[in-house]
Write a protein that binds this DNA or RNA. Sequence first.
DNA 1: AAAAGCCGCAACCGCCGGGGT
DNA 2: GACCCCGGCGGTTGCGGCTTT
Length: 319
Amino acid sequence: MGRSPCCCHDAGVKKGPWTEEEDRALVEHIQRHGGHVGSWRNLPKAAGLNRCGKSCRLRWTNYLRPDIKRGNFTADEERLIIALHAELGNKWSTIATHLDGRTDNEIKNYWNTHIRKKLLRMGVDPVTHQRLPPDDVLIGGAAPGLPEALLSAAASLGGLNTVLMQAQALQLLLQAVSGGAAAGAGLVASFSPAADNAAMPPMLNASSIVPNSQDQQMMNLLAHANYQPADDYLSNLASFAEHDVVRQPNASAPAPAPAPALLVPASSSPQEVAAAADRRPVQGFSDLLSEAMEVPSMCSLEDEHFWKDLLAESNHLPL
DNA sequence: AAAAGCCGCAACCGCCGGGGT
DNA sequence: GACCCCGGCGGTTGCGGCTTT
């Protein structure tokens, strides 16, 4: 025999958002009893509320409790959540016990709306915390709205065999996007698969990478592409927050998003950055490009004629 | 300026397990 | 052991606000 239905199924019980009066009645009732609730089922009647006891409990534990910490999650909290989730799975209440003032509901919501998507963008399975197959990566494949001609160019550039070379190509592509056709005129010629890939073009000199704001974004992409969650995911948690290189603009934040932090230790020289980035090939340049297209203010897509003209100028790619 | 689409979060729902009888 | 009550948990929904078209 199952349980008797909860009072929530009573026809007269109010549902939906709580009013200030209801909040006040609930808080005053609990305070009158020294913070002790007793029976949640009996509370609504005692407090003069036309609510289900369960609803009262939820309202109190998730919103009205005085020790609840409101506001954005810090980077430390985010790292902790990820580490705990890797170990515990969706045990939100257990995870919540490790974060002062955070409720299980809040953590669950934050996971589902922020962290989960972030991991997917990084190519990490949010359930297993392992690297996803390339086809399953959220940002993999063609970027929506990206002109096909550009993707073709990107695919051709995929013949470049290191992250650094591809990233330099990407940088020129992005300069072309933001700076007009002239900036990209020699792009494809410089990076055509027909070119001698073994010889690093002059612009690939590692020391040319200096951490101005745009190059910081570039280096973020480099390190992002170099990220290997399957093996060292947890050990990399300390720098996880800095991996959020495709941070979406925060609509609620009036201030502009801070410049993405460097993925490498601040003490790293540009040479070390480049060396680390150049350690292995990436799986697909179009992936890298697709990620770049998500970097706010890094690209502004023009209409398709712009791309066709740009690529036609190169005389290297069929349109 | 208006409509459509998207996103985040508060709240709901159903199930489970512990404790009491 | 069976039944019942209750609190707690995780998954899901739907509303309101914001952004984009």
